Simulated assay, not measured.
Amino acid sequence: METLNLEQAAQFLKLSPEELRRRAKAGRVPAAKVGKCWCFIQDDLAEYVRSFYSAPRQALRVTFGKEATPCHSKSAVTRGTSTLSHPPASALDALLALPTKSKRRNCTTS
């Protein structure tokens, strides 16, 4: 297990020492402050870099002929048709209409 100082760790991560110090101080990079100096473990820095690797993508599985499985969804719709029923325009107008209330009259009594 090899330890690195701030300059060595910055060179390892291809960062400026000041940027690495800011990230270490914020806890974004694994580090410890021993006395007045920052201390980094090389294995921890390598794991930190590995955390930025993108997740491997799974290739699409292409099937031909009999291997393809039919859709068993009960809500599946064939192309060109629709199972939605639309209410008539008057019903939509009634649903979208804002309720109106009569304005209160300002009345005073003497």
Rank of each mutant, 00 (worst) to 15 (best):
H86L: 15
A97T: 03
A55I: 15
N106Y: 08
A31Q: 02
E2G: 05
K103M: 12
K36D: 11
V62R: 13
S73M: 05
T78F: 07
S75F: 09
A32F: 06
L60P: 15
E2W: 04
C107G: 10
N5E: 08
Q8L: 06
P30W: 00
C107D: 09
C37W: 08
L4H: 01
R21M: 04
I41Q: 09
E47F: 05
E47R: 14
Y48P: 02
A76Y: 11
K101S: 12
R57Y: 05
C71R: 15
D44S: 14
Q58S: 10
R21C: 03
L84G: 10
S51V: 03
F12W: 05
A9E: 00
G35D: 07
P30K: 00
T3D: 12
V29Q: 00
A31V: 01
P70R: 11
T83F: 11
T109W: 06
P88S: 02
A10E: 07
A10L: 10
L45N: 01
R28D: 12
E7N: 13
A68Q: 14
R21D: 05
Q42R: 15
C39D: 01
E19G: 09
E19L: 15
I41S: 04
A26P: 00
A76G: 08
K36H: 12
A26G: 09
L6R: 08
A89V: 02
R57N: 07
T108F: 07
R28V: 03
P56R: 13
A59Q: 03
F12S: 02
L15H: 07
N5L: 02
S16F: 05
Q42S: 11
R23M: 09
D44W: 03
K25I: 11
S90W: 01
S75M: 13
A59E: 08
